[in-house]
Amino acid sequence: MLNDIKTLRFYFITDDSAPALSPAEQVRIALGAGATCVQYRNKHYAPDCLAEVVLIRQLCRDRDVPFVVNDNIGLARQVMADGVHLGQDDAPPARARELLGDSAIVGISVSDLDELARTDLAPCDYMGTGAVFPTGTKPDAATIDGLAGLEAVVKRSPLPVVAIGGITARNATACFEHGASGVAVISFISRAEDPLTNARQLAAVCQKAGRG
């Protein structure tokens, strides 16, 4: 269960294909700058990645920051993550709630109003919506017609919405202005020339939005 939507404000997602930084190093940087939630995303997950996931979980616990696992409910249970984030083609949110319990955080991806109408939101705590802007990290990501699409989903959603897709420190404010409760980033940190500077810049934007 999501106890405070402020934890969605600076939402970092790991990048298993980043050329220079391991997911654990990415998380250290994001947390050090002020990330408020971390999602472990690895579309090529194998058992030999388990130690890395456990390390990331501990890094988040040390900072009292929620840690969720992308797609993999079994892995979330195994490492005692705080929750899971599901796509439209993953297990249904009700199954995640059944397996992870009432205290777990359950997120769901919704790319447009049609998906929103078809999705069972009752077991969910928040939704991720995008791609708001073009992104190379998730080339197969559906788009939501930019900021107008984001705002349309926000207005229809009974849940807090996290904007994702091409988010940077320069455009994050616009996402908040169009109703997002948080912004999720991957490559703005994981593939940056100066990841810590980018992370700090985004944190400053998120903090300012929180005071608005």
Rank of each mutant, 00 (worst) to 15 (best):
L147V: 03
P139S: 00
G136C: 14
P195C: 08
G212A: 15
S17R: 13
A33E: 03
V69Y: 11
G165I: 06
R191S: 12
E25M: 13
N171P: 08
I164V: 04
P93Q: 06
Q207Y: 08
D114I: 11
A18H: 15
C124W: 04
K208V: 15
A204K: 13
R28E: 02
A96N: 03
A180N: 10
A30G: 15
P23D: 15
I56E: 11
G212E: 09
V79S: 10
T137A: 09
D71V: 03
G87M: 04
V54Q: 14
L147P: 13
T135D: 09
I144E: 09
R57C: 13
G136L: 14
T137V: 15
R63V: 05
A152C: 11
D71G: 00
I186Q: 06
R57P: 14
E177R: 08
T143G: 11
V79R: 01
Q78G: 09
R63H: 10
P134G: 09
L86F: 04
A209Y: 09
F176R: 02
P195R: 08
V53H: 06
F67C: 11
F10Y: 14
G165P: 07
Y45G: 07
Y11V: 11
I144M: 10
T137S: 08
G101Y: 03
P123T: 07
E98T: 08
E151P: 04
Q39W: 10
R200F: 12
H178L: 10
R170E: 12
I56A: 07
Y11R: 09
F12D: 05
G83F: 02
L86R: 06
P23I: 11
R9F: 12
G32A: 07
Y40N: 15
A163H: 06
R95L: 15
D71C: 02
Q201P: 09
G165M: 09
V38G: 04
G130E: 13
G179Q: 09
D145E: 15
T137R: 12
S22R: 11
R170M: 12
L116A: 12
H44W: 11
D125H: 01
A76Y: 00
C49R: 15
S190E: 08
D120R: 04
R57A: 14
S187A: 05
D90H: 06
G210V: 05
R41H: 02
S109I: 04
